[in-house]
Amino acid sequence: MTNGPVQAEAPSIELIMSLQQVLYREARLMDAERYSEWVEMLADDLHYFMPGIETRYRRDKTDQVGDTTRMAYYNDTLDDLKKRLRRLETGTAWSEDPATRYTHLITNIEVELTDQDDQFRVYSNFLAYRNRNERDQDTLIGNREDIWRRKGSSYELLKRTIILKQNVLLSKNLNVYL
């Protein structure tokens, strides 16, 4: 995750508002498993990335986020992501039937201009809650850093880096997008 300096030129309220709405809409689509509509929000040249984070000492300079050759939960192009989603469409994804119930809470949204006029860096935090069957549940919390690119009157997701705060994923699977 980068920490850009406070910019001389701040994004406009309108820009911030419209990107916030995009993130909320995206969360609502994911909550409802409306993945075909979600995919429409993703750029053809998407990079969707969630590295595995090991516990290491502060002095250890291993680049766990920037080095994309290391183990990652997601390190996907749009085609890769579509393949994962195709599983749900088969009708035989047994561990999704009965359906899992999802809620994504998206907070701490921060918008930055970039050196590309049509691209915007958007930071956010997420809490994704899952519950299925009787009492299976888990909560995934972390940060995201996105690049959204203007597309017509809206935006498409070009790049997302997700940092989940768990070292051991405390779940039997990751049938959720963040």
Binding site: R87, L169, N173
Partner: peptide, 15 residues
């Protein structure tokens, strides 16, 4: 990781 990670299209149905 697309097949046999926790979010993999095979692994998801084992747990």
């Amino acid at each position: 990781m697309q097949t046999f990670g926790p979010g993999g299209s095979f692994e998801m149905d084992d747990g």
